[in-house]
Structures are given as structure tokens and as C-alpha cells.
Amino acid sequence: QVTPQEKEAIERLKALGFPEGLVIQAYFACEKNENLAANFLLQQN
């Protein structure tokens, strides 16, 4: 279960064009650090 703040962060990451499953994995792998997760996702392409 995610908090409203976490859900907002996940939605912002999804808005970058990444699928939800990948976003969630990256977000939690980066210890819920939205900026770190965004950098991680962008570097995967």
C-alpha cells in the first residue's frame, strides 16, 4: 500500500512515459527517492 504522496510521485514518474510496473520497481529500489528513480529510469533508455 502506498501513501497519497507516494502515489503522486509514481504518477509523475509515469508521466515521463514509463510503464507503471517499471516506475514502481524503480521508485522502491531507489528507497522512494523520486529524483533518483527518475534518473534511473531515464538512464535505462
Results as ranks from 00 to 15, higher is better:
Q1S: 07
Q1C: 02
Q1D: 01
V2D: 07
V2K: 08
V2E: 13
T3Q: 08
T3N: 10
P4W: 01
P4L: 15
Q5K: 14
Q5I: 10
Q5M: 07
Q5V: 11
E6T: 07
K7E: 12
K7Y: 15
K7I: 07
E8K: 12
E8S: 13
A9T: 15
A9L: 01
A9H: 04
I10A: 00
I10K: 01
I10F: 08
I10W: 02
E11V: 06
R12E: 02
L13A: 01
L13S: 00
L13D: 02
A15R: 02
F18T: 03
P19C: 07
P19A: 10
P19H: 08
E20C: 07
E20N: 14
E20P: 09
G21V: 11
G21H: 03
G21C: 07
L22M: 11
L22H: 13
V23M: 05
V23P: 02
V23G: 03
I24T: 11
I24E: 14
Q25G: 07
Q25H: 07
Q25A: 06
A26Y: 13
A26F: 02
A26W: 04
A26M: 05
A26Q: 08
Y27N: 02
Y27E: 01
Y27P: 03
Y27Q: 01
F28E: 15
F28R: 12
F28I: 10
F28Q: 14
F28W: 07
C30E: 04
C30N: 14
C30Q: 07
C30Y: 15
C30F: 08
E31W: 03
E31K: 10
E31Y: 15
K32C: 05
K32Q: 08
K32E: 04
K32F: 03
K32T: 03
N33S: 10
N33V: 04
N33M: 06
E34L: 02
E34D: 05
E34C: 03
N35W: 05
L36T: 12
L36S: 14
L36K: 14
A37R: 00
A37H: 00
A37E: 01
A37C: 09
A37Q: 00
A38E: 15
A38H: 14
A38F: 03
A38P: 00
A38Q: 14
A38G: 09
N39K: 13
N39T: 13
N39C: 05
F40T: 09
F40V: 08
L41A: 01
L41Q: 00
L41S: 01
L41V: 02
L41W: 00
L42Y: 10
Q43F: 05
Q43W: 03
Q43Y: 15
Q44S: 08
Q44K: 15
N45G: 11
N45K: 14
N45P: 11
